[in-house]
Design a protein around this nucleic acid. Structure first.
Lengths: 343, 343
DNA sequence: CTGAAAGCGCTTACAG
DNA sequence: CTGAAAGCGCTTACAG
């Protein structure tokens, strides 16, 4: 077993050790280890270094490298609720994949929405010389950016601020609402109810706007009585069942999958079958629920993975963000079995 | 605004800058900034340093500190599936809170179960001089520890290995199974069905053992016909409904919440009410589901947060781990409304 | 009570 | 083609 790190086997082996073993200087080791383009290293010396590296199990100290080079390879990700839903996990996942792709590593911190924890977390990230910070929320909303974030490059993920000096990347709620409605339209539905959330949010206004866009494009008049307000949970969907039945709609666009889950129950109690009697589409694509309802729920996905990935791309300057507002990420439809062609 | 970090306002301010501004040496600055116990610093010098720090917005470079001190403050957390369920999120959350409490910061990496990604991730953590690594899986299982982990202190979280040189912390499945069964017993149920998973796993054997323990303590003979096998998803629970009805059980312990969710549907279709006609208890405490089913599901929680926290505690040597097996973390009951007192 | 100096493990001009 | 040396931002004996 090679003797590396200080964990299990003694002190770490350094570049100096390799140099000694290979009979060269540390400068030479540095050149071959990093495969420096400029450096002309003799075949022989190069081989000896490589052998010594393998032999000793040398592993460069990334911290020392950062110190001497300046500019670290860390990106901070602060999230308000890592543990509540899988959503934050997907943001982290997307951010991490993209960061790694460019040689960066993620420092994550959960703040539980606690302002003090948040400040501490950001301060610590700053002390670790992060290249920049991704500030994310687990549901799309407007926020006020913590003062301390003025001190580093930051991009907002799944949230935005009126302070437009901060780049932001958020889901395209309006396109999502349009897409959801279009799935119903495409299968022949004309009378489509929309169970919208009662909580004011970009999701609420955006999805409604998208719903109206789709109807308009299809030449269908907007009918206010078709939009039902409900709490954005199972309970809200369940309670909405009677209204959707009363509305005479043949298809329903639910504000989210949990609402759809509740609606399933309410509809079933009234003897209605999905999708034969009534078609349902959700929003969010919350796997645990959507994929396993009976029938599996057709829905529109919230692109959390992409939000995270796009976030690091704009942070790294790899992707331009519009300066007049957030970068919008598309919400794609996810087909399952809750929509039935109208006969 | 203070000029700190290299993010928004020019180059970082260093200890040398502070020393110059305060008219002292960097050694002195170091002493007051770190509040070194040994150092006698004059009131006046101390004050001048503190003022300069505030004035310049000095922030110590944690990387440089690590280099000169040796031994970093990083702990690596590698997870196989951050994005799939909220579970990994809770492990991260628990690990992070505990790590911070002791002045450590978490480096997280998602591997998607990809061996190559995993090795890269661990190598990178090693290069960043992590103090140790938490290797976690999103469901409790046996694993073979990647060779590379021999190079650093590591503790397994939510998984374990036959290689007992690695400390591990896992949920106490058996106690969990006993607890679940006891909830039913305590409310007067005597004939209790158990829908167990078909997949071989510590959860399968542990929960069954706990179920038997509880029955035995209650003086009830184990009846093999009462244990039903099902896929550990909604679909499995749904399909089990007919068997539980046929079994004549008045209460059912479901292998997990998703199974319970499916069972709810199956039972409802047969005209049975929960909990009036039949009591149900789940396992996992998967919030999105359990808290919002109708009726809300009483269940037993998988202690993911605690697993993460305990993991860092044993990694830091703050909590002893048994050397003859994994450290077992209790699975507590979570009362909701799916169990009804037997009349 | 305070500072000069060496050292942590690397990188990078600069010589030769 | 290769090495000596300075420097990254800090800490820590050691002097004084």
């Amino acid at each position: 077993m090679s003797a590396t790190g200080h964990g299990r086997n003694g002190p770490a082996v350094t570049m100096r050790d390799v140099a000694k073993a290979a009979g060269v200087s540390v400068a030479t080791v540095s050149h071959v280890v990093n495969d420096k383009p400029g450096a002309r290293i003799g075949e022989d010396a190069r081989r000896r270094v490589q052998e010594a590296v393998a032999q000793l199990g040398y592993r460069p100290n990334a911290l020392a490298k950062t110190l001497s080079q300046g500019g670290s390879r860390f990106i901070g990700l602060v999230a308000d609720a890592i543990a509540t839903t899988p959503f934050a996990g997907q943001i982290i996942h997307g951010a991490q994949d993209e960061a790694w792709k460019h040689g960066y590593v993620l420092l994550v911190a959960n703040t539980d929405g606690n302002t003090e924890a948040e400040n501490d977390a950001i301060a610590m990230m700053l002390e670790h010389q992060v290249h920049g910070i991704l500030y994310s929320t687990w549901y799309h909303r407007e926020i006020v950016v913590p003062e301390i974030l003025q001190q580093t490059e930051t991009v907002l993920v799944d949230c935005y601020s009126t302070d437009t000096t901060f780049a932001a990347v958020v889901p395209d709620e309006r396109q999502g609402g349009r897409t959801a409605t279009e799935q119903l339209l495409a299968t022949g539905h004309r009378r489509i109810a929309f169970i919208n959330t009662t909580s004011p949010s970009p999701a609420r206004t955006g999805r409604l706007a998208g719903y109206r866009d789709a109807l308009e494009s299809a030449g269908i008049d907007f009918d206010e009585s078709l939009v039902i307000s409900a709490e954005p949970q199972q309970e809200g969907g369940y309670a909405s069942a009677e209204y959707v039945v009363a509305s005479g709609a043949s298809g329903v666009f639910c504000h989210n999958d949990r609402v759809a889950m509740g609606l399933y129950d309410g509809l079933r109690e009234r003897g209605l079958r999905i999708p034969a009697d009534i078609a349902v589409i959700g929003f969010d694509n919350q796997e645990v629920i959507a994929a396993h309802l009976r029938p599996p729920l057709t829905t529109v996905a919230l692109p959390h993975y992409e939000l995270g990935a796009a976030g690091v791309r704009v942070l790294l300057g790899l992707e331009p963000a519009p300066h007049d507002g957030p970068l919008l990420i598309a919400c794609p439809p996810v087909m399952r079995a809750s929509i039935h062609e109208v006969l």
